[in-house]
Simulated scan of single mutants.
Amino acid sequence: MDVAKRLYQRFSSLVHELAKFGSIGAIAFVIDTGLLNFCNVVLDLGPMTSKVAATTVSTTFAYLGNRFWTFRDREQSGLGREYFLFFLLNGIALLFGVLTIGFATYTLGLDDPLSLNIANIVGVGFGTLFRYWSYKKWVFLEATEPIPVELPETGGVRPDR
């Protein structure tokens, strides 16, 4: 039991970060899959256009969730820089989804909604691994100074007086 406790203490921040990243990712996945199916089946935009549209919306949600919740304790190197890199890296990750959907649809001839969703899940899985690694490496950088958890002590004097 002591070993498990030490392992948890050692990796607790990583476990919490992965849980938050996974939560945001799960919601973004629901948004992505819902819009993919809506655009493809209801709007008849085709699988590739539908995937790009769905990913654009879900990526915006994911950026906001990851910036202001998952990686909020990391250095903020500028909203513009982060947003640009986030979307650039998501564009690369989108290739995983587009390639798997394109392969299933145009190479294997599987153009039914179930095959589209299975291909989407495979592409999202590969893209998620790439995104987590790349966000930590290039977008949400480690803080160079510790970010305070609480407001500094004021010695009983309220700062607004």
Rank of each mutant, 00 (worst) to 15 (best):
L18G: 06
S12P: 00
F29E: 02
P47W: 15
T33V: 12
V42W: 12
L45H: 08
F29Y: 11
T56N: 13
V52C: 02
L36C: 10
G25T: 03
T33C: 12
L43P: 06
T60C: 15
A54S: 13
F21W: 11
I24Q: 02
L64Y: 15
F21E: 07
T55Q: 10
L35Q: 05
I27R: 04
I31K: 01
I24F: 06
N37Y: 13
F61A: 05
A28T: 06
S13P: 01
T60Q: 12
V52Q: 01
G46D: 05
E17W: 01
S50D: 08
A53C: 15
A19Y: 03
E17D: 09
A53W: 12
A54Y: 04
C39E: 02
I31V: 12
F29T: 12
V30A: 15
L35C: 07
S12H: 15
L43K: 11
P47N: 15
L36A: 11
I31Y: 06
G46R: 06
H16G: 02
T55E: 08
A62H: 03
I24D: 00
D44H: 15
N37H: 09
K20Q: 07
V41T: 12
E17V: 08
F21L: 11
H16C: 04
L45F: 15
L45A: 13
N37D: 09
L43Y: 11
I24R: 02
G46I: 03
V15G: 00
